[in-house]
């Protein structure tokens, strides 16, 4: 019984982690991309990644679009979470459902629809258009995480602030938002990670100038398997780990503060 469990556990962990472990050393492979047994170590693919203007532009674009769309989604999500806070009733449930719907909508479908309206609004192949598109996809993440953070803010503490002379905007600014801040930042981080990884909507909405790292990787993977992909993948993993650690740290901080 115990042995079967152990073997099963190891197999599952191998299945889940194996791909990540395989992809890491490839970035430092001196040989070509597809040659798996490593032929020698080198940083040359990083040189390609950060030296090639196409890749460089795509990294910048990912940062710009990621930051701007996460900021937009966080702002809209935070406002709405504040408005919906502690409210019940059919309209509220419906609104919440619609706000979460972008999470479920297939990206291709949204891509087609957005391209249809962007043609009319003149937003096709613009940064603004791409940022808006990514923000739509990120809103469920920010809304959920800010809602959860607000739910843990004690109403009594806000009442205390009011009784001590703080008008409602001050209560919001000095008490509610600081207490919800870890949740807001978590939402932002999720949104950023989501934008970083977004390919499909970007294919529909971005012009050649708005090519993001993810889209660049997708094209390279599909069309010409440049070994710089492995370096890009490595960069991605490092970014993910940084984001993950930030997230865990925020959660930890929040728990400690509220304890």
């Amino acid at each position: 019984m115990g042995a079967i469990k152990t073997v099963w556990g190891i197999l599952c962990v191998l299945f889940l982690m194996g791909p990540l472990i395989v992809v890491l050393p490839i970035a430092f492979n001196a040989g070509g991309f597809v040659s798996f047994p490593i032929q020698g170590w080198s940083l040359r693919w990083f040189a390609v990644l950060f030296g090639d203007p196409g890749w460089r532009l795509s990294i910048w674009n990912s940062l710009i679009v990621g930051l701007a769309s996460s900021a937009l989604a966080t702002m809209l999500g935070t406002l709405a979470a504040l408005g919906l806070r502690g409210r019940v009733g059919v309209p509220v449930v419906l609104a919440r459902m619609v706000f979460l719907l972008p999470m479920a909508t297939p990206a291709v479908v949204l891509g087609v629809g957005m391209q249809l309206i962007y043609a009319r609004l003149g937003l096709g192949s613009t940064y603004a258009g791409l940022i808006i598109g990514h923000a739509v996809l990120s809103i469920p993440f920010t809304l959920l995480s800010v809602t959860a953070a607000l739910a843990s803010v004690d109403r009594g503490v806000e009442r205390a602030a009011a009784s001590l002379g703080a008008p409602p905007p001050t209560v919001l600014w000095l008490v509610t938002l600081p207490m919800a801040l870890p949740g807001i930042v978590t939402g932002f981080v999720f949104a950023f990670a989501n934008s970083l990884d977004e390919v499909v909507l970007t294919i529909f909405l971005a012009g050649p100038n708005q090519r993001t790292l993810a889209r660049q990787m997708f094209l390279q993977l599909r069309d010409n398997l440049s070994p710089a992909i492995a370096a890009a993948a490595f960069t991605f993993i490092i970014a993910t780990i940084c984001i993950g650690i930030t997230g865990l740290w925020l959660q930890h901080r929040r728990k400690r503060m509220m304890a």
């Binding site: 503490v157 009442r159 009784s163 008490v175 503060m257």
Partner: peptide
């Protein structure tokens, strides 16, 4: 001035 049953201090 109000003292709350569960203190309601500002944790931050």
């Amino acid at each position: 001035g109000m003292v709350f049953q569960n203190y309601a201090l500002f944790p931050h």
